[in-house]
Write a protein that binds this DNA or RNA. Structure first.
Lengths: 227, 227
DNA sequence: ACCTGAACACCGTTCAAGT
DNA sequence: ACCTGAACACCGTTCAAGT
């Protein structure tokens, strides 16, 4: 009887030992559930039913864990298949699609995205993005030197834009926040900020999508001109 | 004799009471001296020879103080004078100059710049930047709606790029770090990252200035095309 | 190999109290 | 009006010890 219970238990909690990947996924989930500011190693440990010092067997530090969380998020980006053949679209459109995908994934993980700042991403999923951008550019005829220049500009644009965008919040919260800010700007002294106030008064939409596209057209258009 | 000493003392430490601006300046200095991670309210208080709870008489929270530190940094940006007359250069060049100035100031204050992430800047010095960009665009013939779209894209590009750039460190440290990363990328499996590895092998310079300019040309060129 | 208890040296913030 | 002492409820991390 006792033997049987034990067997059941073993089958139930499939692997009592935690893998690094499992911990990273739990960290990511916790980030998005409770927000950036609420995260702590102790909180993560308790979510995993262990004590916080155990985490230091798996990771050297919180920063190291964060590096992996960032890469895990980037891993959610689905890039267009790497085909040069007939079906492959225009390179400019391929790049634009990748940028939109990066934005989609980062907006879906706003809390974890904040980890990207002040961090040089070096994980496989960042490298995958770099490989895609550089490959696309080279097949479009870019020299090595030029492709090397472009890819960071491109990725920094996407990441940088979304990072600032996220500060407004996401979803309904963002819309509310943006409306508040519009109110605030409209109330600013017009003699000091004539253009800012005038322009804000004239526009009522929020247009974060359109702005991303505007910058993106500029960046990619610039690549095309200098190719 | 005791009276005299007292007078001296009063003349020396001009204003024993601290103003918000003084505290903000001290916080900024501390940030850049000891780095982002080392900052604490207790540390700031001890730098000002007060105890940390006193800071909460001046500021509602650490976040509120940070808002002011961010705006203080942005206040260091010197924009071209607002002249429409004969001396005024091409609007594209005026915008480019402003972007370079923002980058210069943020690179000079890397620790404080990290505060910009996840924050919507709403202080007077951010508004000043917005006013400048919008004014320049409107005088160049942009509609209200278009100027409103462009200015955030423009500012986000500058801020976003520098934010990521700063992750490499600054000065000699950055050069060292970049060389390390180049080594690391060159050592990556070429069958997995053929383009990335090839391109990195072909290029030896670090080119963060040139990349910023490349993106900037694209962004501003895009504005010009759609004006 | 993986996890824990106990401890160290910190945090941000509140609040009653001082002057 | 401005500042402090004492306290609360936390942190990340280390390290000897357990299994």
């Amino acid at each position: 009887m006792a033997d049987r219970a034990h067997l059941w238990r073993e089958e139930r909690e499939a692997d009592p030992r935690l893998s690094r990947a499992e911990i990273v996924q739990a960290a990511l989930a916790l980030f998005e559930r409770d927000g950036f500011e609420s995260f702590s190693m102790r909180g993560l440990a308790s979510e995993l039913n262990i004590k916080s010092p155990s985490l230091y067997w798996h990771f050297r530090s919180k920063e190291e864990l964060f590096d992996l969380v960032v890469d895990a998020v980037l891993g959610e980006c689905r890039l267009p298949a790497d085909d040069e053949g007939a079906g492959a679209g225009e390179w400019t459109e391929r790049l634009a699609a990748a940028a939109r995908e990066i934005r989609r994934v980062l907006l879906a993980n706003p809390a974890a995205t904040r980890l990207l700042n002040g961090r040089v991403p070096l994980g496989p999923n960042w490298m995958r993005l770099a490989e895609f951008v550089i490959g696309t550019l080279r097949r479009a005829g870019a020299s090595d030197a030029f492709a090397n220049r472009c890819y960071l500009v491109f990725l920094y644009y996407a990441v940088g834009y979304v990072t600032q965008e996220i500060a407004f919040g996401t979803g309904a919260e963002a819309r509310e926040r943006l409306d508040e800010i519009q109110e605030y700007v409209r109330g600013l002294p017009p003699e000091q900020y004539p253009n800012l106030v005038a322009v804000t008064a004239a526009v009522t939409d929020r247009g974060l999508d359109e702005r991303f596209e505007l910058g993106l057209r500029g960046i990619i258009g610039g690549f095309k001109d200098e190719l």
